[in-house]
């Protein structure tokens, strides 16, 4: 555990909590892509199956349970409790274009051809692109609530911090996981355009809106 890994995990946790609180407090999931949230629930489910097979640490187990629990709670709020506020017309990204290629790739390129390992690989690849329905939705509506941009910033920051964590681990522990690193770079790059808008607009007190 190094400082980048810890702050990355906390940033990820902050993102998840911000989104849950935003929906809960405003009693609305307007502007949130339910499809992205279903993909994240799928990511955590397929990645954390090792909860049943190996124990790493109390921290590890607790965080996994919190992430999974929050992911399903978010999906429940969007598709059940506050379904009337869900903006399905703008959430029109075709997720099969992500899930099918990612599934194929995880079967082809993995560390070990075993069910659990393929599912872990699937989750890593899927996580890297799971935010696309949300970004697509924002590009379609041309704007995002400020609280939603804070969520996205924390979520993007988390993987960027993991990149530094992997550099740290490579130098000080000789550890590297090529699948996680390549997918992590892709994931971080997808946020770059958003990071730019966040810094130039939201941090200066303006609402995030895209030119028509």
């Amino acid at each position: 555990m190094n400082i980048f890994r810890l702050t990355g995990d906390l940033s990820h946790l902050a993102a998840i909590i911000i989104l849950l609180l935003k929906i809960w407090k405003s009693r609305s999931c307007a502007g949130i892509s339910g499809k992205s949230q279903i993909l994240f629930a799928l990511v955590f489910t397929t990645r954390y199956l090792d909860l049943f097979t190996s124990f790493i640490s109390l921290y590890n187990t607790c965080m996994k349970l919190i992430y999974i629990g929050c992911a399903y709670a978010t999906v429940y709020l969007i598709y059940a409790k506050f379904r009337a506020t869900y903006d399905g017309n703008h959430d029109s990204f075709r997720v099969e274009f992500l899930v099918v290629p990612v599934g194929g790739l995880s079967v082809l390129i993995n560390h070990d051809f075993s069910p659990l390992e393929i599912l872990w690989t699937f989750s890593i690849y899927l996580e890297s692109v799971a935010i696309l329905p949300q970004l697509f939705m924002i590009s379609k509506t041309g704007e995002a609530e400020t609280i939603t941009t804070h969520y996205l910033f924390c979520l993007g920051l988390y993987r960027a911090l993991y990149l530094f964590n992997w550099i740290w681990r490579f130098y000080f522990e000789g550890f590297f996981d090529m699948i996680a690193i390549v997918a992590g770079v892709v994931q971080t790059v997808l946020y770059c355009d958003f990071f730019y808008l966040y810094v130039t607009k939201v941090l200066k007190g303006k609402k995030l809106s895209l030119p028509a």
Partner: peptide
């Protein structure tokens, strides 16, 4: 030694 199959990250 690290076991690549034991994923200790989240």
């Amino acid at each position: 030694e690290y076991n690549i199959y034991q994923h200790d990250e989240l």
